[in-house]
Amino acid sequence: MKKDIILAGVGGQGILSIATIIGHVAVKKNLHLKQAEVHGMSQRGGDVQSHLRISDKPIFSDLVPHGGADIILSVEPMESLRYLPWLKKEGWVITNTSPYINITNYPEMDVILGELKKRKNHIAIPAEDLAAEAGTKRAMNIVMLGAAAQFLGIDFAELEDGIRAVFGRKGDKIVDVNLKALRAGRDFTDKATA
């Protein structure tokens, strides 16, 4: 088992909570893990990414090799395309569709979606809306995690346990909202790939 994942977004969107949950599960399963993050300047509204690698064999590089990622998981649509050089030919692009516009030349949404549709394996998900339905827009990241669930090589129940472990300290209500968000993401992908 080996999964290479690029998490993408804009500084401040909090992609690292996704990494934390996957990391938690991976480590519980005694998998090897490496996760490279961006700290520093780009966190001020710049583009940020995290390279997340899990495997049942030791991992050497902290970086996912170019052309080696199984999944690009992006919380922002334009950012999902920035990392195509890292994606395997048959890899999946899974992206939230709500744009984060903090530049003046942000492209039109149809152009972004058009580019995305050129790829056989893509999922575009209105994660913010689904998160709001689950209880809070802030669970958008967790909807995205749910949307990627079937490609992670991790059982869904294990991801649920991961949510319970990571959010447990914040109380049952937060855990429930996030579990709902996780399932909403999963259901969306199930339908999209059915």
Binding site: A69, R82, P85, W86, L87, K88, K89, I103, E115
Partner: peptide, 12 residues
């Protein structure tokens, strides 16, 4: 190397 970054992607 995978696919190129499409031109529509702007620096941020």
């Amino acid at each position: 190397m995978g696919d190129n970054v499409p031109d529509l992607v702007k620096s941020r």
